[in-house]
Design a protein around this nucleic acid. Sequence first.
DNA 1: GTTTATCCTACTAAATCTATAGGATAATAG
DNA 2: CTATTATCCTATAGATTTAGTAGGATAAAC
Lengths: 141, 141
Amino acid sequence: MLSKKTKYGLKALTFLAKRESREPIQIAEIAESENISQKFLESILLTLRRNGFLGSKKGKGGGYYLIKDPEDIPMTAVMRVLEGPIAMVPCVSLNFYEKCDDCPDENTCSIFSLMLKVRDANLEVYRNTSLADLIGIRANG
Amino acid sequence: MLSKKTKYGLKALTFLAKRESREPIQIAEIAESENISQKFLESILLTLRRNGFLGSKKGKGGGYYLIKDPEDIPMTAVMRVLEGPIAMVPCVSLNFYEKCDDCPDENTCSIFSLMLKVRDANLEVYRNTSLADLIGIRANG
DNA sequence: GTTTATCCTACTAAATCTATAGGATAATAG
DNA sequence: CTATTATCCTATAGATTTAGTAGGATAAAC
């Protein structure tokens, strides 16, 4: 299941991407518009800023804004920052590789191959989808 | 991330599928061979039996055994029973549909289309993989 | 009737997710 | 300079899910 954190983060990003202008938007405005707890959203936007997706400005007239073109923000990057590894098991993860603690040997693991296929299928989707693709009237399916 | 429950369930299923004979195998043997807590595995095999994947026999010489050919057990079925919905959000789930509580309208939801694509990509993999495909030396990638 | 192994419910512990509290910091306006 | 505004940041609390355990009931074999 997609975490609320990721869901809210994606909604906030699309909210910002939809705007023509890149003027700062306050957390409160995004939170209200997208039905998100303001404090929770605050922490999410903070991670998005720390990971290079957003800029911010303090004080009156402050808020958050995109610092890249939506076309240049692939879903792979967003998902990895908000949701974590794209792979379902660490031993097939490209960016978060780890040995599975219960597996003596990847070469004989019965689910390794399946997990590889799943990872690749998801990567294919995320790599071919940018924030720009999420904006506007949805292209159904 | 894949839950331990699903991972262990899949390993147990492949362990049983690898055997030529369909004689009952004891939980203890599977648990030891696959590095799984016996009690935990017990509850997993129980759900697999209740959902029509396994048969069981009590008493001496008892245990669990497959009641279908591995070719006839698609990953879609196993995943849905052990891991739950294949979709990442309930509003795009085929078998577990629900409205998202925070979304006023699916038609304007910015992530709906992406979640559909992800679901379909995963379905494609799971539908085209049976338990039989998990057996034996892994076909890498 | 004893042994063996699954059946079943309930429960506990740990981890993760979701959300909140409350003050620190910095920018703006006057 | 001071008040106001809005982000910054750490810590923590509450809720949910996951992982694993306890302990006896049931049924089959010998």
